[in-house]
Design a binder for these strands. Structure first.
Lengths: 190, 190
DNA sequence: AGTCCGATGACAGTGACTGACATCAGTGGT
DNA sequence: ACCACTGATGTCAGTCACTGTCATCGGACT
């Protein structure tokens, strides 16, 4: 038993999510997470760099999907439209809201987790900017377009999660992007 | 001597900046910072919540200036122009680049400090969105406009710091905002 | 059976951060 | 001058995140 049970990472992530939900992030020790997963504290830190990281296991996959979609968008597409393609691509990965709601509730309850989430978004933004640069987009346009895309993603994701009625996330993302385009439109009304 | 020396906060901030620059953030202990400031570790934590915070003393002032400018912009102004007024206002606060270059070099050298910097930006963004809402801007426009403003600030600040020739920061901010407007412009070229 | 390797356990240690209590400097009242 | 009061500081013990090191175990391969 114990040793050599498969999927140690997943068990740790599951245990952490449960415990953070039950008692809160700060009231949970890493030793407790490891114990619930049938492992030791030392082994926890061999799978996750710190106490936060266990909540962000899938963020790498998301980033990769986004970047790939941006990179593979037709060269004729404007940068902002390549980013839109990236948003469309990642939207496919989000299915049932329940999971994400539970997860976001845990993150919303703790400043340390929110801080780490911002880092993940920043990492995505940097990776997207990089993909845009490889498409020939110059600075500072690449960084600004990537930041705009992440802003749309953040807002769209939040809207999708908190909406009372179930909606298509890709639809929400498109609307959010349109909203951004509207508020940054050149002409000053009035 | 020792006790009751004035400006404990400032001495701690100065000591921290020096030590982080000399040996690096991770190679510096809070006890060492406190000692150089003529204080104890315990007193450090009475002035700053954690080891990072000592680097971000002035961020609150910056946020207040930005928010005030947004709030006081003429009601006839579009949201994005109120944010532009905020950018203009904070630009006044940045004088010599040397200070900021040293500071940003320290931050760039450590992930924990970068993470905290993102939190400060997020706090500014939330405060700006709040000011926009008080101007009657609805969601998600308020959040998107605020995020766009922060993106412009980040990019503009970076450009200003890294430019080879000395330039007016308010000018750089205006150009960055124009660039954002350009990349988010509706029409797809080609 | 013997050998090797990667994942885990055990243990000691550092440093960030906190709670509780004592102590000191300056202030104001008498 | 004396004394109470307040707020900033020092002291000390303790928790917990995180790390380095070495022993140990399970499985694969020969």
């Amino acid at each position: 038993m114990g040793r050599w049970e498969p999927n140690a990472c997943g068990r740790l992530a599951q245990a952490a999510l449960e415990l953070f939900g039950e008692r809160g992030y700060e009231q949970t020790t890493v030793a407790e997470i490891a114990k619930r997963a049938g492992l030791t504290e030392r082994t926890y830190f061999r799978h996750y760099a710190d106490k936060c990281e266990v909540m962000f296991g899938k963020s790498g996959v998301l980033q990769e999907q986004f970047v790939t979609a941006v990179a593979e968008a037709p060269q004729s597409m404007a940068p902002i439209d390549a980013v839109a393609a990236g948003l469309e691509a990642v939207a496919q990965a989000f299915a049932d809201r329940r999971e994400y709601r539970q997860r976001q509730a845990v993150i919303a309850a703790n400043a340390e987790l929110q801080e780490r989430e911002l880092t993940k978004y920043a990492s995505m933004s940097a990776a997207i900017a990089d993909a845009l640069r490889r498409r020939g987009v110059a600075e500072p346009s690449a960084t600004l377009t990537a930041e705009a895309g992440i802003a749309v993603f953040k807002v769209g994701f939040q809207l999708w999660l908190s909406a009372s009625e179930e909606r298509e996330i890709s639809q929400v993302m498109r609307e959010s992007l349109d909203e951004l385009k509207a508020v940054t439109a050149r002409g000053v009304p009035g």
